[in-house]
Nucleic acid binder design. Structure first.
Length: 603
RNA sequence: GGGGCUGUAGCUCAGUUGGAUAGAGCGACGGUUUCCUAAACCGUAGGUCGUGGGUUCAAGUCCCGCCAGCCCCGCCA
């Protein structure tokens, strides 16, 4: 539909120029006319597109909106290209122009997609002449070393992955970076503790398991808080580590390796690809950041700490609040690392990644931090004109009580447990259904279906909500068989696969496509919207738009399936409907794939 | 005190950047199976879009005030 709207846009602009010559315009009407106000129809009964500019124009040029609309229509109907695509337009309400794309054009669009891997979605056009303007970095997941992944990492991981998939599909060269917390003062206590309780592990790997490592972290923390001697040793250990002491570095690497292995298990289950590039990667650039800011006169000294002061950043007293770049003890903090990361990521190769767009998928609590860091980077001229740097914030995961999701005993929920529970419930659902339906399935089938459904449910539940608001986690809802859920979408695909099994092998021919039922046309129109939806997600970074689309598509398919015979239909309707099924399946599969959700033939 | 986000049907949420009578799903109530998986489909009920102003042909959407909830605000990330 995107290509059609582009053509219509052109026709309409030409019509407006004819109907309202430039010389007759004042500044305001010229402004209104510079935008055609061509938008998708707000309701199916209004056709495919609507033009709203007559209303906006009426007062300015003192002609009733209905007459304006008439003038526009008259011009449009002189346009051969327009007539080829649209039925005669009509005026509705106070002066809206409704456009309906004719059936022949829709059929042509459909048949073009039947043999097209990209299903009619054109790759994005990038800025010409700017090297790597198509390179984007998606920074997501980012757990902390020596800790277990918990529910707090869920949203970043799932949303980030989906955005990366969409951007890849659009034609971006995507670098998926896992900015893990692998540096900082907490390593002092961890290494000190490790050296004392398990000195033997320093020489061999694979001894400490992460389950233990979580306990291990707790033990170290307790000792750090309670034991003064331990605290001092830990502080020394930080210095050792930072100065590159071999033993300390070994201990650090061991801890990182152990964590990495455990993270990978989760990523494998979720089918998520990430390149680890932790905070420590930027250590060697930190000094340069300070130097650079200093040279640009952006640094001020405040109580021994080196800071940047932004006018828009106000503190408790209403005065501008400094952002600390280097602590009074000479150490660096997260703002420094994030600045170094921005600079490195935007600097051209070989001294950086040379990206044209940076995307940070973190919780909304960090909004002001990123806003500050981005502003500093801008002041320091590290963000080239054509680059986009975006924070993609998301809300909390809440329990059904509306509070932050916790276990009954009040502890943070481990991500592993969450995944296991979803799969377990999906399995219970499936087995009880098999029983009532008297179906006999193999264990491997049951395992595969429940794993797919369980993981899909968790991912889809998260992605289908507008990420900005908090999200209420409910196993019951996400695994529900009705409504905007993963199982509902998966089921639509299963139905189509069922048709194919029962002899519905369609012949892909662009000839003889014939459609006569409203259910068919509704499905066709929805199928053709795919490209617009993907473009929208690419621009606004909101995967829930894609979910909403896939749900609507599934609904329209289910209605079609329910109300229109397919296998029993006569030719050429039978083959036309089979092709519609096949295109629906391809569209759903592509969409699910962009969400990071695998599909099934049977469930 | 300053800043950010949120507030839409009983519940969970959409709302395509200002368009026509505000939409889904769940839950409630009623209906549909000689037929491709009924994990579906069809119908009914349900709204002062937190609130008060403003901007204009037109506001859930933009601006200002207020109310409520959550989050952030110097040496943690």
């Amino acid at each position: 539909m995107f290509s059609i709207s582009t053509i219509l846009e052109k026709s309409l602009q030409a019509a407006l120029n004819e109907a309202f010559p430039t010389k007759e315009r004042n500044s305001k009407s010229a402004l209104i006319l510079s935008n055609t106000h061509l938008i998708p129809a707000s309701k199916p009964e209004f056709g495919d597109f609507q033009i709203n500019c007559a209303l906006a124009l009426a007062k300015e040029i003192k002609i009733p909106p209905h007459q304006i609309a008439k003038k526009i229509i008259d011009q449009l109907q002189k346009d051969v290209e327009f007539l080829r695509i649209c039925n005669p337009p009509n005026i509705a309400g106070p002066g809206f122009i409704n456009l309906t794309v004719n059936s022949q054009t829709l059929i042509t669009e459909i048949s073009n997609r039947l043999n097209d891997e990209r299903l009619g979605v054109a790759p994005k056009e990038f800025i010409k002449g700017v090297e790597n303007s198509n390179r984007v970095i998606v920074d997501f997941s980012s757990p902390n070393i020596a800790k277990e992944m918990h529910v707090g990492h869920l949203r970043s991981t799932i949303i980030g992955d989906s955005l990366a998939r969409v951007l890849e599909f659009c034609g971006y060269e995507v670098l998926r970076l896992n900015h893990v917390g692998d540096w900082g003062t907490q390593f002092g206590m961890l290494i000190t503790h490790l050296k004392e309780v398990a000195p033997q592990t320093l020489n061999k790997e694979d001894v400490v398991e992460i389950g233990d490592l979580v306990n291990f972290y707790r033990e170290a923390k307790t000792r750090f808080d309670e034991n003064k001697d331990f605290k001092n040793k830990s502080r020394n250990e930080v210095v050792n580590l930072q100065s590159g002491n071999k033993n300390s570095l070994n201990a650090w690497k061991l801890l990182c390796n152990q964590s990495r292995k455990e993270f990978q298990k989760i990523y494998d289950r979720l089918d998520i690809e990430l390149i680890e590039r932790g905070e420590s990667f930027y250590n060697k650039f930190l000094i340069n950041i300070i130097e650079d800011l200093k040279n640009k006169n952006l640094l001020v000294n405040d109580q021994g700490a080196k800071c940047v002061v932004l006018k828009s950043f106000l503190g408790k007293d209403g005065k501008p609040q400094p952002i600390i770049i280097q602590k009074s003890d000479g150490g660096f903090n997260y703002a420094t690392t994030d600045l170094a990361a921005i600079k490195y990521r935007l600097t051209k190769s070989p001294n950086g990644d040379g990206a044209g767009r940076l995307i940070y998928v973190t919780d909304a609590g960090q909004s002001s931090h990123f806003s500050g860091v981005f502003q500093i980077a801008k002041c320091a001229n590290w963000i080239p004109e054509y680059c986009r740097v975006e924070h993609v914030p998301f809300g909390l995961v809440q329990g059904e009580d509306g509070k932050k999701l916790k276990t009954r005993s009040g502890e943070t929920i481990r991500l592993v447990d969450l995944l296991n529970e979803a799969v377990k419930r999906a399995k219970q659902d499936l087995t009880s259904r098999l029983k009532t339906e008297d179906r006999d399935e193999s264990n491997s089938f049951i395992e595969k279906v429940s794993t797919t459904v369980g993981i899909a449910a968790i991912k889809y539940a998260d992605l289908s909500q507008n990420r900005v608001s908090n999200y209420q986690f409910s196993f019951e809802k996400m695994l529900s068989l009705q409504g905007n859920t993963a199982p509902y979408l998966l089921y639509a695909l299963v139905r189509i696969a069922g048709i194919a099994r029962k002899g519905g092998k369609s012949e892909v021919s662009n000839q003889n496509l014939i459609f006569k039922e409203i259910q068919e046309w509704a499905l066709i129109r929805k199928l053709l919207q795919l490209d617009c939806v993907i473009a929208e997600v690419e621009e606004e970074l909101l995967p829930n738009r894609l979910c909403g689309y896939l749900f609507e598509l599934s609904q329209l398919f289910n209605r079609f399936y329910d109300q229109v015979p397919i296998l029993k239909a006569d030719e050429p309707s039978r083959n036309s409907r089979l092709l519609l099924c096949s295109l629906t399946a391809d569209t759903l599969k592509l969409g699910m794939n962009l969400l990071g959700i695998p599909t099934l033939d049977r469930m």
